[in-house]
């Protein structure tokens, strides 16, 4: 179980380790803005939206990148201003622990049920 957890964590980490060396700054903006909700739109990301809000947001992200901020810092910065609602990728905290863990618990529970049903011989 512990192994699986570690493995999972590693996978999640590697999901994010895209090759930064090749990335241009504008692609960096795309990447970040895809994870941000356009707050004045209905269910659109900042990346997809052409609204005033989204356009300004993209400029702001570019500026922050130029200032040398990394993704995490930019997300944190925006969360401080607009709350968790703005990011599509909820981080693990006391509010979202069930969100992340519940499906995994169900999976383990299901596996146990199957193992009980199936006779190993």
């Amino acid at each position: 179980m512990k192994m699986i957890k570690i493995l999972l964590k590693l996978m999640i980490i590697f999901l994010f380790l895209q090759n930064n060396s090749l990335a241009e700054t504008s692609e960096e903006v795309d990447k970040i803005s895809k994870n941000l909700r356009c707050l004045i739109c209905q269910g659109q990301s900042v990346y997809d939206s052409q609204s005033d809000f989204a356009l300004s947001m993209k400029i702001l992200i570019q500026n922050k990148i130029d200032e040398g901020k990394n993704d995490e810092q930019i997300y944190e910065y925006l969360k401080a201003k607009y709350g968790e609602w703005i990011v599509y990728d909820p981080e693990m905290n006391k509010n979202t622990v069930l969100l992340w863990v519940l499906p995994l618990i169900l999976f383990v529970f299901g596996s146990l049920l199957i193992l009980r049903k199936v006779s190993i011989r």
């Binding site: 707050l39 004045i40 005033d52 809000f53 300004s56 400029i59 702001l60 500026n63 201003k81 607009y82």
Partner: peptide, 13 residues
Amino acid sequence: PKGINSIELGAFG
């Protein structure tokens, strides 16, 4: 002019 100062304030529009 770019709308970014308003975002610093946490504005929507």
